[in-house]
Amino acid sequence: MSYKAALRVWRGDHGRGDLADYAVEVNEGEVVLDVLHRLQATQAGDLAIRWNCKAGKCGSCSMEINGRPRLACMTRMSTFTEDEVLTITPLRTFPVIRDLVTDVSFNYAKARQIPSFTPDPSVGLGEFRMQQADVERSQEFRKCIECYLCQNTCHVIRDHAENENAFAGPRFLMRVAELEMHPADTADRRDIAQDDFGLGFCNITKCCTEVCPEHIKITDNALIPLKERVAGRRYDPLVWLGSKIARRPRSTGTPKVPDNRH
């Protein structure tokens, strides 16, 4: 069974543009990306779309479909009624290069700022052993496909571009949490999580978790545990008192964010 779907697709570049109307054929079992490819092949040869795997694993085809951040390759047309108009726009948080393609280099810059894995130098290569129980928490975060839907939907930068310098976004706070929980990582990342990556901006409204196509519990398993760890270092008077009477020495060696690494 095929039908003609009504599409409103954002066309334009460098932020300037408008929604253009199209009627495109839809066949049974298709996803939004299939329909966009048909639009490109039949009516709008110059439509720019970023895509790669068509299997929800490369994170390239992130866009907003009827206002919701989603992967076009994982959004079935059968989730919409045949008479529903589909409005398809680029990710709102990032600058538009052209049509549905955005410049996500903000995320690469943030990724480079995170001090890398810091193992104990006295443990030789191949000597460290980890149990499955120690690995499991980090494994969940490693499912991330870098689609940046969480970065896009987080209101801290989506609605307040002025926070882009101070806030790394959920994806990279999750990376900080992953390293902070890693049993072989010796660096204390709690201060930089708060000061340099803006953990305090997060008000745990869980939109990052809601849009994650890998169903990673970003808020519950990464951001809140990281907030609790920061609270332990920065805002817990008992920990502070313990460090003063030297029963619980404060850990040191918090790596600072490297400067000027674009």
Binding site: H14, G15, G17, T93, P95, S105, K110, N165, N260, H262
Partner: peptide, 16 residues
């Protein structure tokens, strides 16, 4: 604090 690459808001899709 490192300056991230400029992503001025005005070049985001201007959707009212």
């Amino acid at each position: 604090m490192t300056q991230v690459s400029d992503a001025p808001a005005k070049t985001r899709a201007q959707i009212s």
